[in-house]
Design a protein around this nucleic acid. Structure first.
Lengths: 352, 352
DNA sequence: TTGAAAGCGTTACCAG
DNA sequence: CTGGTAACGCTTTCAA
């Protein structure tokens, strides 16, 4: 130890750059290094006298416990990985902020990983594992093999708006299908007879679920010949999709169901601007998500809002539970979306 | 070492939960631990034979180098902190995605910190320091003392859209004032004579700069009696601000200058919906940012777009340079915004 | 090319 | 309550 102390001393004198360690503090305070460590812990057993000396020494040196070193010995990094695809964030930025803030209330930091596309996850997962995160929240889907890899490392995972069929996983999601089914039901009940659907990116499972939900309900209600055109969640693709619908159908549909709000807005604009249609008088358009712009007066979308607040709270508490209690069995929490009757579509309930 | 090996062996047999370490791999491959370490590095000096044995052993055990431990010894965590305020992310989500992706291209992970308000930064900074990040990008302002603290820890900092007056710091920003001055100049040249300004949150330095820029230019052009009403960057506050303007001024101004696009959109909606005004025929409205909704056909804002791509690229490369070369002198990079002539305002250049 | 051993800065366990 | 010492999992000399 004598050697270490000497070294530390030299360093602190020579270069102010080196961050102070607990040894430096110990020396200055005239106590042992373990004492310093204890002072900076919760259930510390330290006399008032020592505590004071340590604290003042630490203050003088600008000492802060090294969270990395702590993580190494405690086997807890107090970091979780949050994996989101570009789409998730751009069209729903609140998710990330909410997750980060709630985790931080529990003393947990967020290591962020973004994917251009969901399929890019392989490399990212490797990184996640190297950083010894205590848990993972993923808004991208994992393959069986990937899930196994991460479970072998005994890192709990929460799927955000994804779920693996036939697999015991933890997930928090908004019931996309239920939401779409409600929208379709409302539209049909209000008298709409012909439909077109604007789907989202193919690698988005959320978009798939929404489209499937809408199609199922339409089928149940005996509505056929539904045109499906592809979009990418973006505004321009919404406009293009509407143009495509118009081109492919002899007469315009009574209603257009877009896989998200942004594309629904694109459809509204294209309908109005290029075709001089009135929304909802000439055509009804619905979206999904409940993002900010959906409430702008020019659009006032009928849509289903994902309860982001409750969902992120659920994700955070589920993950923390599983970090602290690794044996916990998997749980899926499904939230219903909030139903919003806007002015962009004539819905049955809106007519009352 | 014999003891360690034995321990490792026991662990790997007893509990599959324990992550494999380089010792485990070394034992299985029949080589030394240092050899394993070398194989997983860049300029490794290892024979083909050994490399193969190590790699296959590692594969069998699902071994991955522990980035935390590596960081401890190398004094490089390969993590940077990104500090953003809630506002930054909600109204400009691209910033975060861009930063994260560009950093990740350089093998650097982003540890995310979000602030409800810029003044909450104290606690956050403490966390940042504990996590031994290699650098910081902050979209929140720091006090002198805070900056000193972080510089004492010799952690390079890049200010994103902030700058400390009278202080040598690294910063990347969009020239808010220049942008506003251009907008005002255009409006005046097009014949607008009376103005109102909708400012953003008081704790947002960006909003302050924009308001100041607009006011200065108006003053230079001899335009007086400019009404300033307060907003919070949100849509609803834009609507409320417009209502307030109407209430406080005898006759409506020729033009409204909003501190960001979202509030400008709120103004447009309030003008149209509540007051049956035509935009821009009856009143011109301009924003700032160039966010997605600004381009929606219903609004088509005249605005100044922040070049997020170039700005985040600049921030990333500046930070990496300073991590790798701590002696580098401070640099400020100021980008001009892209000028967008939209349909929400009658501008001089738009009339040509 | 390879292996042994010394750290990195902490916590955890054990005597005193 | 306190101090000494052994990990945590890795990189990095330094010999062989």
């Amino acid at each position: 130890m004598a050697k270490r102390l000497k070294l530390a001393k030299e360093n602190s004198e020579r270069s102010p750059r080196k961050r102070a360690t607990s040894y430096d503090v110990a020396e200055l305070a005239g106590v042992s290094q373990s004492a310093v460590s204890r002072v900076f812990q919760d259930g510390a057993s330290a006399s008032k006298d020592m505590r004071d000396r340590v604290l003042s020494a630490a203050n003088k040196l600008g000492y802060r416990p090294n969270a990395i070193a702590r993580g190494l010995i405690t086997q807890r990094s107090n970091m979780v990985a949050v994996v989101i695809s570009r789409q998730t964030n751009l069209y729903y930025p609140e998710v990330l902020v909410q997750l980060t803030q709630r985790f931080s209330e529990h003393g947990i930091r967020v290591l962020l990983f973004t994917l251009d596309h969901e399929r890019d996850i392989d490399g990212v997962l490797e990184q996640v594992l190297q950083y010894q995160v205590d848990g993972v929240v993923t808004a991208a889907i994992l393959s069986e093999a990937q899930l196994e890899t991460i479970e072998n490392a005994s890192i709990p995972v929460i799927f955000y708006n994804r779920t693996l069929p036939e697999r015991l996983v933890n997930s928090v999601r908004c019931d996309q299908e239920e939401g779409e089914r409600w929208l379709v039901g409302q539209l049909v009940a209000a008298g709409h007879k012909t439909f077109a659907i604007v789907s989202g990116p193919e690698d988005s499972s959320v978009s798939m679920e929404r489209t499937r939900g809408a199609l199922q309900k339409l089928k149940e209600l005996n509505i056929k010949d539904v045109l499906i055109v592809n979009g990418d969640y973006g505004y321009a693709s919404g406009r293009a999709a509407f143009a495509e619908i118009q081109q492919k159908m002899k007469t315009l549909p009574d209603a257009v169901i877009a896989a998200n709000d942004v594309m629904a807005i694109g459809c509204v604009d294209e309908a109005r601007e290029t075709n001089y249609l009135r929304v909802p008088e000439d055509i009804s358009i619905v979206g999904f998500d409940g993002v900010g712009p959906a409430r702008y007066a020019a659009y006032d979308l009928s849509t289903v809002r994902q309860p982001v607040g409750r969902m992120s709270e659920a994700a955070v508490s589920m993950l923390i539970e599983r970090i602290e209690n690794p044996g916990l069995s998997p749980e899926k929490r499904v939230f219903s979306g909030d139903r919003i009757l806007g002015g962009s579509a004539i819905l049955a309930d809106g007519e009352k």
